[in-house]
Design a protein around this nucleic acid. Structure first.
Lengths: 158, 158
DNA sequence: CTTTGACACTTAACATGTTAAATAATAATC
DNA sequence: GATTATTATTTAACATGTTAAGTGTCAAAG
């Protein structure tokens, strides 16, 4: 008799932004995990690959920011992806501190294949929630992120 | 002229639920991290402690679900919290497979102190975003989580 | 009562999160 | 140009995420 996956009472802790955001993200990611597992790529590696793909070439700092991974994690991820032949790392000739990352042909091929599946999954989610609801939610999330990140403690007019 | 921390172009990857939810959560948690660091408790440990506090006594499975941590993580977290004297673990006498977790007095005291700071931070967030916006967002997130988690594949009535 | 299966953790192994410290290269200053 | 500060990345150490396999307990059959 499966009692449903979440039968804990919705107490105060559950009605908070950190938990709600975490649970919502889990619900979404659950649908992508099988695909990621198929191509043997972790969530974080996938985000990194996607950002590199979109940027053609990108340095590690911007990559870390866009893919939402910390620098130490990115170091390990890039090492792993490079050893798998999916990306290449090179030094910026103008600033040799910077690492420039590019997708290899193998990496591009992998993303092309998986991208189709990913798009399909996203379409399924859209079909279930409606594109409008998703757009509204994305807007609200973006606004909140922006409002919280902005450090305009001053006039606080807004 | 601070160019703001995130000046990467809002490309397609950024406009997706997984990334938007991740970034939003980061923006929120950023405000709580100093407090957590003060009391030397990680995010996950904090969630576990909060859930235990609300439940008085709770078994590990429900605890893991409510605190959004996986069973293997919970095992380590409980071991750590127990060694710090914040919680106690006991066996359910009716079902000795189950671990029952309770807060110690020290744990209760810690949560009482930190809870005040936490509430204050949450109030600051509410002041910045408005309680209504947060409530609406929580509703939207809960609905989405529910809609995505529900396995309503037509007939298949559970 | 024994066997089988299901359930509740626990352990193991690897990847990542997180913080602090270390390296290397650039930029600023004297 | 040498010193200092800053920036970009890496390394280290510990905690957690994630999956798979292992262990002990309960429950249903035989």
């Amino acid at each position: 008799m499966t009692r449903s996956r979440d039968d804990f009472p919705l107490s105060a802790t559950q009605r908070t932004l950190p938990i709600a955001l975490l649970r919502a993200r889990e619900a979404v990611m659950e649908r992508f995990r099988p695909m990621l597992r198929d191509i043997d790529v972790t969530e974080q590696q996938w985000r990194v690959l996607r950002v590199v793909q979109e940027a053609e070439e990108i340095d590690a700092t911007q990559l870390a920011r866009a893919a939402c991974v910390l620098a130490p994690s990115l170091t390990r991820i890039l090492k792993s992806l490079e050893s798998r032949g999916l990306i290449t790392q090179g030094r910026d000739k103008n600033d040799r501190r910077r690492t420039l990352v590019r997708l290899t042909e193998a990496g591009d091929a992998l993303l092309h294949e998986a991208g189709l599946v990913s798009a399909k999954i996203y379409a399924e989610i859209e079909a279930k929630l409606s594109a409008e609801r998703i757009a509204d939610l994305l807007d609200a999330l973006e606004r909140m992120t922006d409002d919280l990140t902005r450090q305009d403690d001053a006039g606080n007019g807004d």
